[in-house]
Amino acid sequence: MNDKAQIHPTAVIDPAARLGEGVSVGAFTVVGPEVEIGDGCQIGPHCSFTGPTRIGSGNRFIGHCAIGGEPQDKKFAGERTELVIGDRNVFREFVTVNRGTGNGGGITRMGDDNWLLAYSHVAHDCIVGNNCVFSNNTTLAGHVTVGDWVIISGFAGAHQFCRIGDHAFLGMGALVNGDVPPFTMVGGNSLGRPRGINSEGLKRRGFDAERIAAIKRAYRTLYVAGLPLAEAREQLGVQAESSDDVRQLLDFIDGGERPLLR
């Protein structure tokens, strides 16, 4: 115990680690060098933190989390890479989040107000936005980008280099091998496929009927009309003139390395 943080006597804190005000650390947790943990973070028992890792304020690590470990990549040769985590995230039991790789940008990054439920895994060089929910056993391979307000159901996951757009929803067991556009709902049961838009989620986040109708029209153009992607993009360009949401969808389509999930 000290004035700066509440440390269980069995925890091991490297002298080179930096803990903010009001941090609590549970039994048998290990915090290594080059780890920075912000004010008010709560760390449960049997967690490990490996640096270089920077963690913001108000995060909760419930127990048995492995944060900032080496990337699971055979090409990793010990180069200096980082993990950066924002504020007010919750990491449930046995969550793992790895640092980046030297040839993948060197950093894994997570924003604010995310919930990662038990056994979730965020691999090297992933970028995760804000207000996401990763249900139990969610798995992101390396270099995956996840937008804001994304919900991923249990046992679902994403292939390397995939992108998942804002407000998307992946059903239970959905495994995606292509980019998931914003607002899209992906059906579960093995290889995921688009199954409409996330209407309920959009309503809960304050999207009005007009905005949702424009997104539905764009979805039908992209997925229901049977158009080649190039022709669908042309029609979306017209629709985007009167809808910022459709413009976001169109910009997403034009920006990825993986094929669009269709």
Rank of each mutant, 00 (worst) to 15 (best):
P52K: 08
T53Q: 02
T53I: 02
I55P: 12
I55C: 13
S57M: 10
G58E: 10
N59F: 03
N59S: 12
N59E: 01
R60F: 11
A66D: 05
A66G: 11
I67F: 09
G68I: 00
E70N: 13
P71Y: 09
Q72M: 05
Q72E: 09
D73R: 01
K75D: 12
K75M: 12
K75G: 14
A77D: 13
G78F: 06
G78K: 04
G78S: 04
E79D: 15
E79T: 11
R80M: 11
T81A: 07
E82T: 12
L83W: 01
V84M: 02
G86K: 05
G86H: 11
D87N: 15
R88T: 02
N89M: 06
V90Q: 13
V90Y: 11
F91D: 07
E93F: 06
F94E: 08
V95I: 06
T96C: 08
V97T: 07
V97E: 00
N98Q: 10
N98T: 11
R99V: 04
R99D: 09
T101L: 03
G102S: 09
N103I: 02
N103K: 08
G104Q: 04
G106T: 12
T108I: 03
T108Q: 07
R109W: 01
M110I: 15
G111M: 09
G111F: 06
G111P: 09
D112Y: 00
D112K: 05
D113W: 08
D113V: 13
D113Y: 12
D113F: 08
N114T: 10
W115V: 15
H121G: 02
H121N: 12
H121Q: 11
H121E: 05
V122G: 00
A123L: 06
H124R: 06
D125A: 09
D125F: 01
C126I: 06
C126L: 10
I127R: 15
I127C: 13
V128N: 07
V128R: 00
G129L: 07
C132G: 13
F134C: 10
S135A: 15
N136D: 10
N136Q: 14
N137A: 15
T138L: 04
T139L: 14
T139R: 03
L140G: 01
L140M: 15
A141C: 13
A141R: 03
G142S: 03
G142L: 04
H143G: 08
V144H: 01
V144C: 06
T145V: 13
T145R: 15
T145N: 07
G147A: 08
G147K: 08
D148E: 08
W149S: 13
W149I: 01
I151N: 14
I152E: 02
I152G: 01
G154C: 02
A156T: 14
A158E: 00
H159K: 01
H159Q: 12
H159D: 04
C162M: 02
C162Q: 01
G165M: 11
